[in-house]
Amino acid sequence: MLFINYKNLSMLIFLTNRIIQSFIVLLIMSLLVFAAVYAIGNPIDVLINPEASEEEKIKTIKNLGLDKSLFEQYYIFLQNAFKGELGYSFVHNRPAISLILERLPATLELTISALLIAIIIGIPLGTIAGLNPDNFISKSILAMSIFFFSLPTFWVGLILIMIFAVSYNFFPSTGRGDTVEIFGFYFSFLTFDGLKHLALPSINLALYPLALVIRLTFAGIQETLPLDFIKFARAKGLSRFRIIYYHLLKYILIPIVTVIGLQFSVLIAFAVITESIFAWPGMGRLIIESITLLDRPVIVAYLLVTVFIFMLVNLIVDILYSLLDPRIRISDK
């Protein structure tokens, strides 16, 4: 007997659909990155260390297959990419991909803690402001969110260093501090010293998403409160607690999850600034160094890895979205 659950089936279709889409996007991105690297100037200048000797250059040209046609080269590039090889860094003289992956945990640690700060503080503040928009506290919260929204991340980083590290010596201003190894990766949030190092950079990075989460929660509540189903829930005689947590917050969580997912990508990008100010040894700092040193293979690897992360996050958000909102005909998205 074959019993097909329609809901599971459409979920499967949806997932396949999304994975194929992500794959197409990755393919297009690889093409764009490839084209960008090759279209601007001589690929030999771009891909081969300018300080190399003439002999070495010829050898590398052959190694990299630069004597072949563009099509063949892209094909080889793709083949290598599938094998996880994205070229050698000139500066570090190591595979670019392993350089990136080595620093990925530090960046993820920073972005996730910033996002957590934003969510844990932002949703309650936004809720308070949304429920009583006219009192003084709510107005202050909203004014604060515009303020945070406008703060230039890099400048705030400098000011934080100035106040807490230079003037008061409260927090260390650079580095990651002590780390703990888990599954071969190093994390600093498990030691006190590590947490102290993490504090300033993650606060710095959290300000923008915090402002966003506050405003989003506020707007969501303001839009939902006058809706009939809230009125009907009140007419049923439900407690205020149940209406807020069950009817209101669960409903506005849907758009918030989407935006937070998108913010994750934005934060990985903005981590470039925070990492270079606080000398946080993540992949953002690596990319800035690579840009100044013209270490192109690392840039290419960084881009493809981040795009891959974005696709993954988008996929997770889409799945969460369809779990949270029963109305979505998943196959329709």
């Binding site: 996007v25 297009i28 991105m29 960008a36 690297v37 601007i40 990508s265 934005v266 990985i268 990008a269 903005f270 470039v272 990319i287 840009i291 840039i299 881009l303 981040t306 795009v307 974005f310 696709m311 988008n314």
Partner: peptide
């Protein structure tokens, strides 16, 4: 959509690193 999937800061950073 493809452009929007990338954070604008990253797009600008990459373009400027090339240009």
């Amino acid at each position: 959509d493809m452009v929007l999937a990338m954070p604008s800061f990253l797009i600008a950073l990459v373009l400027l690193s090339i240009l």
